Structures are given as C-alpha cells and as structure tokens.
Amino acid sequence: MNVALWIVAGLLAAAYIFGGSYKLATPKEKIAAAGAAGEWVNDFSSGGVRAIGALEILGGAGLILPAVFGIAPVLVPLAAAGLVLLMIGAALTRLHRHELHLVLVDLIYIALAAFVAWGRL
C-alpha cells in the first residue's frame, strides 16, 4: 500500500507542479487560446489564474516534500485534501461551463488525491 501511495503521490505532484508552473508562467490569453481545455481561464482574472497555479504548486510539493524529509508528515494528507477541494472547484467550473467531457478528468484527480489523503492519515 505504501508503494502505491508513493506512486500516486509522485504522479500527482508532478502533474500539479507542472500544471501550476504553466499557469504561473503563461499569460491568461495564451492559456485561453490553447483550446477548449484552457477556455476556463476566461471565468477568472489573471491574478486568479496565477493564484490557482500557486496553489497547485504548493499542493504538489506538499504531497512529497514533508514525507521525504520527515518534517511534519501530517502535511501530506492536508495537501492532498486541499487538492481535492481545488479539483472540486475545477469540476464545478467545468459543469458551469457545460464541459462535461472534461469533468471526468477532474473526478479522476479528485479520486487520486482522496486516496493519498486517506492512505496517509
């Protein structure tokens, strides 16, 4: 079980750190122009998109770093729970935008982050 938790946490951390970095470094207009999956940024200000990116980076780092360094490992399930909340917001945004085909991806992220939160408690 521990190996599965590390694998899922590592994959989630990589995805969130990469995605969050993209949101921090890329202008909102360029994200929106990337296609249907990026049009959600039109519902948020540039600062809001950057804040989401920062939360994703912090959550991704929180999935790995506390456990690796053995400093406050209780932060791992808290980071995972925070990512669950973030992805619930993403799913609700997609539902509001009638992007039902993308909600499934959000639900998978929710399930994986919930697995890490449950497993690390």
Rank of each mutant, 00 (worst) to 15 (best):
A51T: 10
L65T: 09
A54Y: 09
V41N: 10
L65N: 04
I52E: 08
V105L: 12
L83V: 06
G38S: 13
V49K: 03
V74P: 07
A81S: 00
W40A: 00
V74C: 01
H96Y: 13
A67R: 11
L63W: 08
N42P: 01
G38Y: 10
A67F: 08
L75A: 14
A90R: 11
I52W: 07
L58E: 04
H96G: 12
A79R: 05
A90D: 05
H101K: 07
P73N: 00
V116N: 01
F69G: 00
G53P: 03
V74S: 13
A72L: 09
G62S: 09
A51K: 06
L104C: 12
G82R: 11
A80I: 03
D106R: 00
A79G: 02
A54D: 11
L107K: 01
A111G: 07
D43L: 13
L83H: 13
E99N: 03
L102Y: 09
F44H: 14
N42M: 05
L95T: 08
L55C: 06
G47V: 09
I108K: 07
A37F: 15
N42S: 04
A61H: 05
L86C: 06
L100Y: 14
F115A: 04
V105Y: 14
A61P: 05
L55A: 14
V41F: 12
I52S: 12
S45G: 12
R97F: 06
L58Q: 02
L86P: 05
D43V: 02
G70A: 12
L95P: 03
R94G: 00
A67M: 02
L63E: 13
A90C: 11
A81T: 05
A81W: 11
I110K: 12
L100F: 15
L85P: 07
I52Q: 08
V41T: 08
L104S: 14
I64Q: 05
L55H: 10
F69T: 01
G89D: 09
A90W: 13
R97P: 01
L104F: 14
V41S: 10
L58N: 03
V49H: 06
V84L: 14
V105S: 03
G47E: 11
W118N: 00
G48E: 12
G82M: 06
L65W: 15
G60D: 09
I88M: 05
A90I: 10
G59Q: 05
I52Y: 13
A80M: 05
A90L: 03
S46F: 06
G59E: 02
F115E: 00
A80D: 00
L83Y: 02
L75V: 07
L104H: 10
A54M: 02
R97N: 02
M87V: 08
